[in-house]
């Protein structure tokens, strides 16, 4: 056999192997389609934020719950892709067409990053799976300050003059600044917004009196509330948090009024939802919806939700899509009014 011939024959052999592989693959697919779809290799769980943040915590929590309760045969692998305010992570998922082994957890940057930076992606480029929970926002002040209600706080900010009050928050043109902008738009006051790296930093800066107020998530500031260093004024949800266990000074989360009922008409919650790559089958999406329903039923998850005072609404399918479309519109109008859209 000449070298060329052997090369040809090996190429042919390769082609045949290739074909047979496809054949096997097709048969496995068709046979397993009768059963439910299941991941056949490890699932990448993308976090479009750095290690240690809220989304990262939740993702690793889910990873641990799945592992501990054997909810899936294949392992879950958490990967942080935080570049460009999470754009890197979203582009990775939206760019990997029909890959059922890749899911992503979202935070507000799903909507804000494309609007603020102009990096082209949208939730419509991915397959929505489920809403796991909504993260609450609370208006906090230092407990040494005189403000006992949102009204007192807003009035003082108005009398203090423009930019006299300093609002700390996580990141720039993201959830915390959007809530701040929403307060400005409803009340006509203006704040100086100081972006910090993480929620823990913001809470500590508020304790140290370097800023006047913050809109920290409950979990980021609850320890300082219990220690008597911070005071919650109101929660930016449509209803009060349904947790009646006392936290500090005999008060529970349920005793914190909504901002709306106390005259500050601003509502904002942040999506903690799951998306998949575009083009995946309904079967594959169904697998993950069921998986996350199982996760939600575990005690560990319920405990985590209570500790963080989350809004535990669950949505999937069309209901979820409707919510997303509406949330996108809300974000766009808020950001447009605040002048946060990329030029």
């Amino acid at each position: 056999m000449t070298a060329l011939e052997s090369l040809k024959s090996s190429a042919k052999a390769a082609a045949i192997t290739c074909l047979s592989f496809t054949a096997i693959a097709t048969t496995t697919l068709t046979s397993s389609a009768a059963l439910a779809w299941e991941p056949t290799k490890s699932v990448e769980f993308i976090v479009p934020a750095g290690t240690g943040g809220g989304a990262d915590q939740m993702a690793r929590m889910i990873q641990g719950i799945i592992q501990k309760n054997n909810l899936m045969k294949q392992p879950v692998v958490v990967i942080n892709k935080s570049g460009g305010a999470g754009a890197e992570g979203f582009l990775d998922v939206s760019g990997s067409n029909r890959n059922p082994h890749k899911i992503i957890i979202t935070l507000s940057n799903l909507f804000t990053t494309p609007m603020a930076t102009g990096v082209p992606f949208s939730w419509k480029d991915m397959t929505p799976v489920a809403m796991l929970a909504l993260d609450n926002f609370i208006l906090w002040v230092n407990s040494e300050s005189a403000y006992k209600s949102p009204k007192e706080f807003v009035d003082a900010a108005k009398t203090g003059g423009a930019n006299s009050f300093k609002m700390g928050g996580t990141g720039s043109k993201q959830e915390d600044q959007i809530v701040t902008a929403a307060i400005e738009q409803t009340t006509g006051t203006t704040f100086t917004y100081i972006p910090y790296k993480g929620g823990g930093d913001v809470a500590a800066q508020l304790v140290g009196n370097h800023i006047t107020a913050s809109v920290n998530n409950p979990i980021e500031a609850v320890a300082q509330w219990r220690a008597g260093a911070l005071r919650p004024l109101c929660v930016f949800d449509s209803q009060r948090i349904q947790l009646k266990e006392p936290i500090a000074e005999g008060k529970s989360w349920n005793d914190v009024p909504t901002c709306k009922e106390s005259g500050l008409d601003v509502e904002y919650t942040m999506l903690r939802g799951i998306f998949m790559s575009p083009g995946v089958t309904a079967d594959q999406t169904k697998f993950y919806v069921e998986l996350f329903q199982k996760v939600r039923e575990t005690d560990d998850w319920k405990d985590f939700m209570a500790k963080g005072a989350f809004n535990t609404t669950f949505k999937a399918g069309d209901e979820y899509k409707t919510w997303l479309a509406q949330a996108e519109t809300t974000h766009r109008s808020l950001m447009e009014k605040a002048g946060f859209l990329a030029k």
């Binding site: 592989f21 056949t40 290799k41 490890s42 990448e44 392992p75 692998v77 990967i79």
Partner: peptide, 16 residues
């Protein structure tokens, strides 16, 4: 460690 490194066709064939 469950840290995925870049993999090629061979690993895919083996199911990774």
């Amino acid at each position: 460690f469950l840290v995925p490194l870049p993999k090629g066709p061979i690993e895919t064939m083996l199911g990774y």
